[in-house]
Write a protein that binds this DNA or RNA. Structure first.
Lengths: 232, 232
DNA sequence: CGGGCTCTTGATGTCTCTCAACGGGCGTGG
DNA sequence: CCACGCCCGTTGAGAGACATCAAGAGCCCG
C-alpha cells in the first residue's frame, strides 16, 4: 500500500510517485486513450514510458500460470493517477509485464525509452529522478505486498482510501477538497488490488460508513473522520 | 512471487535478479556480515547499493504504522541470494526503507551511489543494467503482491520452493544439484514472506511431502516431483 | 546436561470467500 | 417517453481456509 503519511508515523515515508524532473521541459508527444481502452498490453515490446496527464489507469498483471489449462489468475497491481508513471515494469525484459487500462478518458505523455536513456546519461538530475521513480515503485509494491500479507480487510480498505486521497491531493489542478474522493474504479477493481472479493470491499465500506469514518454514495466518498480512518 | 518458469508458461517470464553487467570489472570493496547481523537498517542514509557475493539476506520492512502505540507490523519482503542486489528501495528517499539481515555469514560488494550514478552516465550498458535490475525488482514485488492477494497457502509454498530452487541454480559456484535446496531461513521467515503463519508453512510442507512432491528433513528440501509441485 | 529455539501436529475459532437474491443507474431501443 | 437489459453495488446465509492456542519433540550450543 502507498503512504498514509499520518502525523503519528515515526519514520519518514517516501514520496511515492515522484514527479519526473525536467520531463515537462521536453516536448514529448501525447496520446489520448478512451475509457476502457488499453494503453498497452502485456507481452508487447516496450517502446515508451508514459506519465498520466489527465485521467486514470489501472495496471493488470497475469500470474505466469504454471498449469495453464484453466484461468490464469489476474490482479490489479496498481492504479495510476495524474503525474504518475506507467510501464516501469517492462524495462527489465523489454516487454510490458501488465496491461494498462484507462479508467476514464485519459491523456498520457509518451517518453520513448530510446530517447529517455541517452537523456538520463546527459542530465544527472533526470537520471536521478528516473531512479527515484523506479525505487518509489519498488517501495510501493513492497508495501502493497506487506499489506496483503498481514492486514485484515477493514484496514486494507481504509488504507486504500487514505492513500488515494493523499495522491489526489498531489494534483494541483484539482479543486482543493481533500476529503471528497470520487473513486474512478469499480469495487471489483479495488478488491482485486487489495486481494479481496468485491463483496468484502462493499461490506467494509459500509462498515466504515456505519462507524462514522466516511460517507459514501456509490463511488463518491467523503472522508468524515480522517483520524478514525487512520486509527482503524 | 518470483519466476517458476515452468515449461507450460505462455508468456515470457523476466529473468529477475538480473546480473549487474560490468560491475565485476570495477574494484568495488567488499564487507563481511555475520549471520544475524544487519547490513543496514531502515532509516539510515543510503550510501551504497550491495550485491551478495556469498551468503544470503532477508529484507524486513515495517509498515508505516498509522496508530503507532502498539506493534508496527513487519514482514519479510525479499530474500537475496548470490549475485542479487540489495538496497534498491532506498534510492527514492535516500534512506533505507527496510532492514537487511544476514541469514548466514555473508560477503557483499559495496557500490557507493555517488560512484554508481556517474558511472551509469558514462557507460550505457551499465545504466541499462541498473534500470533492468530495478525494473525486475518492481516485477518481483508486484508478483509477490499478486500471489499474496490471490493464491492459497499450498500454492504459495510450492511456488516459493520452485522459485528458490531456480534462483539457486543461477549460482554457478554451487554444485549442480538443482533438486536439493537447503533453506537458509526459518519457517517463520518463510511465513512472513508469504503472508502465512509459521504453522501453516509447516503444514503445507508436510502436505507436499505426503503428496510425494518433496522430501524434507528440517531445512533440507529435495524436490522429488517438480512437475507435480508446479501443477499444484 | 540443560535451556532455548525451531519445527511439527492437533483442536478450536474466526475472518473472508462463495453462493444467492435484490435494487438502482444507465444506455439502448422500442 | 418508457421498457428492458446489463452492469454495478449491497446485503444475507453458509462454508472453508487459515489463524490462534496449545502441547510436545528434535536439535544446536553453551
Amino acid at each position: 500500500m502507498d503512504t498514509p503519511a499520518s502525523p503519528g508515523a515515526r519514520r519518514h515515508v517516501p514520496a511515492l510517485h515522484v514527479h519526473f524532473a525536467n520531463a515537462d521541459a521536453i516536448p514529448f508527444p501525447t496520446r489520448n486513450v478512451a475509457r476502457g481502452d488499453a494503453l498497452y498490453c502485456a507481452g508487447e515490446p516496450l517502446r515508451s514510458l508514459y506519465t498520466v496527464q489527465s485521467g486514470c489507469f489501472k495496471s493488470v498483471a497475469a500470474y505466469p500460470s504454471t498449469n495453464d489449462d484453466v484461468p490464469p489468475h489476474t490482479q490489479v497491481t496498481a492504479f495510476h493517477l495524474i503525474d504518475e508513471t506507467l510501464a516501469l515494469d517492462g524495462i527489465c525484459t523489454g516487454q510490458h509485464e501488465s496491461d494498462a487500462i484507462a479508467l476514464e478518458d485519459s491523456v498520457v505523455r509518451i517518453m520513448p525509452v530510446g530517447i529517455l536513456e541517452p537523456l538520463c546519461r546527459e542530465y544527472a538530475p533526470m537520471q536521478h529522478a528516473l531512479l527515484a521513480i523506479m525505487s518509489a515503485e519498488i517501495v510501493r509494491a513492497a508495501r502493497l505486498a506487506l499489506m496483503l500479507g498481514t492486514m485484515p480487510a477493514l484496514i486494507r480498505v481504509s488504507a486504500f482510501l487514505l492513500d488515494l486521497s493523499n495522491r489526489l491531493d498531489m494534483d494541483a489542478t484539482r479543486p482543493q477538497q481533500p476529503d471528497d474522493v470520487l473513486l474512478p474504479m469499480t469495487r471489483a477493481d479495488i478488491g482485486s488490488y487489495l486481494g479481496l472479493e468485491l463483496e468484502t470491499v462493499s461490506r467494509m465500506l459500509s462498515k466504515l460508513q456505519r462507524e462514522g469514518a466516511i460517507a459514501l454514495s456509490g463511488r463518491q466518498v467523503r472522508i468524515v473522520d480522517r483520524a478514525r480512518l487512520a486509527r482503524i
